[in-house]
Amino acid sequence: MSSQGRRPPPDLMEKTAVVAAQQNAMERGCKFLPHGSRLFDVEQGWESITISRDKNTAVADTLLTLESALRDPDNKVIFIPAGALMTYQDIEKLCQRNAIVKTLFREVKKS
């Protein structure tokens, strides 16, 4: 491709980056949460930044915001930052009492 070639629109690039980041995180396996939700770990870095900045992703750093994101029918993807005030058991508990299918990405420190 020549350097003068048409650049893809920024929206498409962002979308592609989000999908790539999600796919990378999903490859590392998941925790099956109650009622069909899944929790994927995403390493701190470009992947976590890309997912968290996506306009279709709700960011939840406390249990109040997590439950509100779970209850919002417009949210499909929820991002939990590394410093969030919640344990895995908390996430499991909230998914148990809100039967809905969501995809959760939890930021973890790089291994």
């Binding site: 009622h35 069909g36 209850r71 029918p73 148990q96 009492r97 809100n98 039967a99």
Partner: peptide
């Protein structure tokens, strides 16, 4: 409870509350 939740999810995008 999965099946109870599923019936609700099939019908609506709202979450189904599960009371322990």
């Amino acid at each position: 409870s999965f099946m109870g939740g599923l019936q609700g999810r099939i019908r609506s995008k709202q979450s189904v509350e599960v009371f322990d």
